[in-house]
């Protein structure tokens, strides 16, 4: 992968969780709840998993490109 396209891709993967969590008015509500847990709580817990996946893939791609340099 070219360095410039890597930087764009890694930036996008990093920024997605920021956008999802900065949209506070979008998730500060109680419905739909999950197992008694209001939406506000499980939405943010879900983003812990998604952030790990997104940051993790960004890191892997980054490392692989550095290796091939």
């Amino acid at each position: 992968m070219k360095k410039s396209s890597l930087i764009v891709l890694v930036s996008v993967l990093t920024i997605i969780p920021f956008i999802a969590l900065l949209d506070v008015p979008g998730y500060a509500k109680s419905a739909p709840s999950l197992g008694g847990l209001p939406f506000f709580y499980w939405y943010q817990i879900m983003w812990l998993f998604l952030a790990t996946a997104l940051f993790g893939s960004a890191a892997l791609m980054w490392n692989r490109t550095e290796e091939s340099e």
Partner: peptide, 23 residues
């Protein structure tokens, strides 16, 4: 730096325990 980057990128997962403790 690669070890560092990988381990950091996987750290949000630690937050699940934190979330439940907060609850």
């Amino acid at each position: 730096p690669k070890v560092l980057r990988t381990s950091q990128s996987l750290l949000p997962l630690y937050g699940v325990g934190l979330a439940f403790l907060a609850l």
